[in-house]
């Protein structure tokens, strides 16, 4: 029972270490966690040097604003790093015939997919939480005013983690469908970004995964429960479809 899950979970850890996947994702996330508060701190000075009039008083940077800005940066750059790092997780295994031995040993495709998904979500979530802690620390050192409680910010990290879980599930589905990881990554990003404007429609916005980001930037779970349930349900559907696809895939 669960032997494929255990074997693949361990294999994903070894692979992520040896192929610097953790390092790449950590750099993509932690870099902004550190650089964002520094840039926010320096922004008024940079602007005053660039402009003839002294407009620095218009750019008052508070802790809340810096934390919100970090979440925005994470979605723009960190998101790309995560998606492109994970987009070949199944396509590479299929195209390079690495699944021949595992499948011929009776490996369960469903357990393999679930092991990969849980590993990727856990690893990403942990690195996101670490990035939020580092960002919170630097924001509190460098910037003053308009405090946000630490636990509220950690709640935001969890909401962002759930949003990434939805995107990782979608990315894995595309990775099982397309031969090139790059294509799977591009389509995942295109779909994810196209959901943002749709999330503005009042009738459906409570259900849209992007609602999680709105809640994260408000440092509150209020109004996000439906989105959490939807994201979890759709992620489960993505993974179920991926399991089906991998059980039907000809691995050679």
């Amino acid at each position: 029972m669960m032997r494929t899950f255990k074997a693949y979970f361990k294999k994903e850890i070894i692979e992520s270490i040896r192929q610097y996947r953790y390092v790449i994702i950590a750099i993509g996330i932690v870099f902004f966690a550190v650089s964002n508060p520094i840039l926010m701190k320096m922004l008024p000075k940079i602007l005053s040097n660039q402009m003839s009039a002294d407009l620095s008083s218009l750019f008052v940077v508070t802790r809340r604003a810096a934390l919100i800005n970090h979440i925005g940066d994470l979605l723009e750059i960190g998101f790309l790093v995560i998606i492109f790092t994970l987009s070949s997780t199944l396509s590479d295994e299929l195209i390079s015939k690495k699944l021949v031995f595992p499948y011929s040993k009776g490996c369960s495709p469903a357990q393999m997919v679930v092991a990969k998904f849980i590993h990727h979500v856990l690893a990403t979530s942990l690195i996101i939480v670490l990035g939020f802690i580092i960002n919170y620390y630097y924001v509190n050192i460098l910037i003053t005013g308009d405090d946000v409680p630490f636990l509220s910010y950690m709640l935001s990290a969890v909401l962002v983690g759930v949003y990434f879980m939805f995107n990782i599930g979608m990315c894995m589905l595309f990775s099982s469908l397309f031969k090139k990881g790059f294509v799977a990554g591009l389509i995942s990003i295109a779909v994810s970004y196209s959901l943002i404007p749709i999330s503005g429609i009042n009738a459906i916005k409570a259900y849209m995964p992007y609602r999680l980001i709105s809640a994260a930037t408000a440092f509150s779970i209020e109004g996000a429960v439906t989105a959490i349930i939807t994201a979890a349900a759709v992620s489960t559907l993505f993974i179920a479809l991926t399991c089906y696809r991998m059980s039907k895939a000809e691995v050679i």
Partner: peptide
């Protein structure tokens, strides 16, 4: 070890 794990 990976294959052994898969084979139980």
């Amino acid at each position: 070890k990976f294959i052994g794990g898969l084979s139980g």
